[in-house]
Amino acid sequence: MNIFRLVGDLCHLASILLLLLKLRASKNASGISLKTQELFLAVFVCRYLDLFTTFYSVYNSVMKVLYIALTALIIHMMRAQSPIRGTYDASQDTFLHVKYAVAPCAALAALTMLVQGFDVRDLFWNFSIYLEAIAIVPQLIVLQRYREVENLTGHYIFFLGAYRALYILNWIYRSFHERGYKHHYVVYFAGIVQTALYVDFFYYYAISKYRGGKFSLPS
C-alpha cells in the first residue's frame, strides 16, 4: 500500500458517497447517468470475483463490498425509489447502448486471453479493466447535454477523476519501490485512456472553481 493508492481509493469511495448524498438530499437524479452506474456495477462484480478465492486484507475486502453494495444502492434509488425515479431522464442518457460497450470489451478480454493463456477469472478481470475505461462516457455525455452542473454532481466526477489520476501515480510508485513488481500493460493502457477522458472536465471544473461562479460546460 502506498499513499497514492490509499488516497485514490478514498477518493473513489468519497465520489460514491457524494453521489448518494446528492440523490438523498435533492431527491433528484437529473444530470446523472444510470448507464454509467450500471456499467460500474458490472465492472465491480466482474473484477471482485476474487472476493471468493483470494484474501488480500480486511481493507481490500471491505472496500470491494462497499463499492458493490453502494453502487447497487444508487441504481436501486434511480430505478425504483420515488420521487427520484421520476426525475431520471432516460431520453438524455442515450449515448452508448450498453451492448456496444460490453461486446467490444468482452472481445478485447477474449483476445487478451490468447496472449496470456486462458483463465476464467482472468477473463472477467480483463473485461472489467476494459469496461471501466469507458464506463464514465455516458455520464460525461449527460453532463454535456445538461450543461449546468450541480455542485455535488461536479464534485462526484472530480473525485472519480482524482481517483484515476492517483492510480497512475500509484503504478509509477510501485514499479520503482516494489521488488519483482509485475507490470500489467493492459491496466496501464486502460487506466491512461480512462484518465484522459476526465481531462476536459477537469479543465472546466478548475476554471469554474477559480471564478467562483456556477459550473457550466460550453456547448
Partner: peptide
C-alpha cells in the same frame, strides 16, 4: 513489501 501484482488493487 509483499505485494507485487496490480491484481491486489481495487
Amino acid at each position: 513489501e509483499e505485494d507485487e501484482d496490480a491484481k491486489d488493487e481495487l
